[in-house]
């Protein structure tokens, strides 16, 4: 079994600044592996361990993203690939999926791709489904449990808004992970040492048989502004009785009770 995990490096907190040209400036904020992708890595590792398979992690990003790939290697992934090209600097989700699909086709015999259900920075949630489309594979989104995974098929539970769904699909397949799919392991300190100096192969668009026009993108960000600040809380004064009745009244008014 050969599993690929798509890993995005994102800022740890959302306290990013928006620059004059509407881009996101995350300088000084610790970069981490996208939360949902950590679950994807752990799930791939667990099944690869059970099935004697191998795990390749792929990230599309700048050279800095090698930090996240090395962390995934130190967690136990076998190989890592960085896709880095100047034309990808402001790539949209759909084009990113197109590029990563090309990279997955370039790899040998991939049976399954795990992604997080969304990234915690852009939050489009489009990457996994778009990737499945470009690969022409079925997609299993919002997966919170993988029951079985063999060389040919997979059985998972999906957490939908009102329904929990158990689904079986044939491989190859794209799976997107929700939070709490598993408990991601910490990287091994021994492996951190080993991968620290290991070069990560980098593929450009050219390496994937693509050009700048393939990733031109259909989505332009017209504007970016910080969300309005939360209104400050209100202190309810008076004796306990007045406070309680006032609180209850407000809860009813706001349809919380």
């Amino acid at each position: 079994m050969h599993a690929v995990v798509c890993v995005k490096q994102v800022p740890e907190q959302n306290s990013v600044k928006i620059t004059a040209d509407k881009q996101i400036n995350s300088d000084g904020i610790n970069p981490i592996i996208n939360l949902f992708d950590e679950y994807a890595i752990e799930e791939a590792l667990q099944w690869a361990e059970k099935n004697d398979g191998q795990v390749t992690v792929i990230s599309l990003g700048s050279d800095d993203a090698t930090d996240s790939l090395k962390k995934a290697l130190a967690m136990g992934a076998n190989e890592a690939v960085l896709i880095n090209d100047p034309a990808l600097e402001h790539v949209d989700s759909q084009s990113a999926a197109k590029v990563v699909a090309a990279a997955i086709k370039k790899l040998d015999n991939v049976n399954i791709v795990f992604c997080g259900k969304q990234s915690t920075d852009d939050e489009t949630g489009q990457f996994g489904p778009a990737l499945a489309r470009f690969l022409g594979w079925p997609q299993l989104t919002y997966v919170f449990k993988v029951h079985e995974l063999s060389e040919t098929s997979i059985v998972v539970d999906r957490a939908l808004e009102d329904t929990l769904e158990t689904v079986e699909a044939s491989l190859p397949v794209v799976v997107t992970a929700v939070k709490d799919l598993n408990e991601p392991r910490y990287p091994s300190l021994l492996k951190i040492r080993k991968v620290s100096k290991q070069p990560i192969p980098t593929w450009s668009l050219g390496d994937l048989g693509l050009g700048g026009s393939d990733v031109a993108g259909n989505v332009q960000v017209a504007d970016r502004v910080p969300p309005p600040a939360r209104p400050s809380g209100e202190m309810i004064s008076g004796n306990v009785q007045t406070q309680v009745s006032s609180l209850v009244q407000k809860l009813v008014e706001n349809q919380i009770l």
Binding site: A74, P187, I192, S196, K197
Partner: peptide
């Protein structure tokens, strides 16, 4: 070194 920084960061997160 890169290795020392990475070990430190991992222990910090842990």
């Amino acid at each position: 070194t890169q290795e020392q920084q990475e070990l430190r960061q991992t222990v910090r997160e842990f």
